[in-house]
Computed example of a mutant assay.
Amino acid sequence: MSEGKWLFLAGLGAGAALALRMSEKQISSVKGFAAKIANSESITDARRVATEKMDDVLRTQGAKLIDKLAENLKTQLNAGGSAAWAGFANAGKTGDTPPDASTTSTDKDGVTRDKDGHIIIDGKIVA
C-alpha cells in the first residue's frame, strides 16, 4: 500500500477509537494485532519479492528506454542532411562566417541579451 493509504487507515482507526471510546486495553490490542500483521514473515517475504521483481523490471525497461532514446537521437541527428553537417563542420575554418554571427547585444546598463531578449551571464541564459 502507498503511504497515503496507510495514513488514511491510521486516521480511520484513530477516528473509530475516539468514536467508539474504546478502552486503552482494546486500543493496545488492536495496535499489537496490526503490528503483528505488518511484521509477519509472510508479509516481509512478499515485500522483499515484490521489491526484487520491481528492481528487475525497472533495470531491464530502463535499459530498453535508454537504447530507444539513443536510437531516436541518432535518427534525428542524421535527418539533418549532409549539407547541414557540412556547414556546421566548416563554420570554424578561416574565412567562413557562421550564420547569425551576432546574436547577442549589450544594452546601456551593460546587460548582455540574446536576440530573444533573454539575459546572458557568462554565456548562460539566466532570465
Rank of each mutant, 00 (worst) to 15 (best):
S2K: 07
F88K: 00
N90I: 03
N78M: 04
D100R: 09
K115E: 09
E41W: 00
W6P: 08
T104K: 01
N72I: 08
A91M: 09
V111A: 02
G123V: 05
I27G: 01
A16P: 02
I27W: 08
S105V: 07
D109M: 05
T94Q: 15
K25S: 07
G81H: 06
A34D: 00
W85R: 06
G87S: 04
D116S: 09
A10M: 04
M22R: 05
S2R: 08
E52S: 07
I120P: 03
N78W: 01
A127T: 06
T75S: 15
I121T: 06
K93F: 09
K31M: 10
S2H: 08
K74T: 08
K36P: 01
A19Y: 13
N39C: 15
G123T: 02
P98K: 04
W85N: 07
K53E: 13
L73H: 11
V57I: 12
G62W: 14
I66H: 07
L65T: 01
D45W: 11
F8G: 06
L65P: 01
T44N: 12
P98N: 07
F33K: 10
D107K: 09
V126A: 10
T94R: 15
L9K: 01
A91I: 00
D109Q: 03
L77F: 08
R113E: 00
A16Y: 11
R59F: 01
E41T: 14
D96M: 04
A84Q: 12
L12T: 03
V126M: 04
G92C: 05
K115L: 09
D100G: 05
N72R: 15
D116G: 01
A46S: 13
S28E: 15
D56E: 09
H118R: 11
A16M: 08
K64C: 05
N72A: 08
D96C: 10
G87N: 11
S102K: 05
T60G: 03
K64E: 10
H118N: 14
G13T: 15
A101Y: 15
A10L: 13
W85G: 03
A86D: 11
L58A: 07
P98Q: 14
W6D: 10
Q26M: 13
E52L: 07
I27S: 06
D107C: 05
D67V: 02
P99L: 14
A63T: 10
T94E: 14
R48K: 05
H118F: 01
G95M: 03
A79D: 12
F88I: 02
K64N: 10
R21C: 06
A86W: 00
T104A: 02
T44E: 13
F8W: 08
A46K: 11
M54D: 10
T94K: 14
V30E: 09
K31E: 00
S105E: 12
L77Y: 02
A19Q: 00
S42I: 01
A16L: 06
D116H: 11
R113F: 04
M1A: 04
R113P: 09
E71N: 15
E41A: 11
G95S: 04
L7I: 12
A89M: 15
M22G: 03
G4M: 12
K115I: 03
L65Y: 03
V49E: 06
T106Q: 11
Q26F: 07
R21G: 08
I37H: 10
K5W: 08
P98V: 02
T75G: 06
L7S: 13
